[in-house]
């Protein structure tokens, strides 16, 4: 069990590393218009998807069950990285890259630093009462069932990809400086505020 938990992140890292190769080799080809999908593909994509989904859900479940905060952070890396892989599968390359850089690279490190700075011992455990666990499990299971019920039964406009969406950097750049200029600027101001606020709150008096 311990071996497995240690091996899982390593597997994920390897998956991330070889992901572009998968994408190009199989049924997605790069062209000037962005990534195009070849007509015959599907199998490898499905395989990739299931592997990703398994890692996402598996590490998610591991987070739920783990009692150790450092382990949770490591599992979270598995989740985040395979979500990034999913973005690649969804042809959102840029978002995938950003996910890896910002989340897996930045936020996670931040979390771990938070753990190290706030914990007397990084292995400290906080146990939860059994009935709380049960209540949470029941409510969440119900919630999941209801949501899945909706998701599966709803009639979405398009089940398959009739239109292939490219997501070149150019599109993002143009989008951010035209239609999304105001949110973009607002976001920059927000980041500034957060920077100041975080520095203010974490200051030494």
């Amino acid at each position: 069990m311990k071996l497995l938990t240690l091996a899982a992140p390593i597997i994920v890292v390897m998956l991330v590393a070889i992901a572009p190769a998968f994408a190009v080799d199989t049924d997605l080809t790069l062209s000037e218009q962005g990534i195009q999908r070849s007509a015959d593909g599907g199998l490898l994509e499905a395989l990739m998807f299931y592997v990703c989904a398994a890692v996402v859900l598996g590490s998610g479940l591991a987070i739920c069950l783990s009692k150790n905060i450092v382990r949770m952070a490591v599992y979270l890396f598995g989740t985040l990285a395979s979500v990034a892989l999913m973005y690649f599968l969804l042809l959102a390359n840029f978002i995938g890259v950003i996910q890896l850089i910002v989340y897996a690279g930045g936020t996670l490190i931040l979390l771990i630093f938070g753990v190290m700075l706030t914990s007397k011992s990084p292995w400290a455990k906080f146990d939860v009462k059994r009935n709380e666990l049960i209540a949470a499990g029941v409510v969440c299971a119900l919630f999941a069932c209801l949501l899945l019920f909706v998701v599966v039964n709803a009639e979405w406009p398009l089940e398959t990809d009739a239109v292939v969406v490219g997501s070149s950097m150019t599109q993002f750049g143009v989008g951010l400086l035209t239609n999304y200029l105001v949110p973009f600027e607002a976001m920059s101001v927000l980041l500034l505020v957060v920077m100041i606020g975080a520095a203010y709150m974490a200051r030494q008096e």
Binding site: E132, A135, V139, L142, F143, L146, L147, V150
Partner: peptide, 13 residues
Amino acid sequence: VLFGTTGAVLVLA
């Protein structure tokens, strides 16, 4: 959070 989720479940149901 638990209460909030419960509420969400009820509303969704």
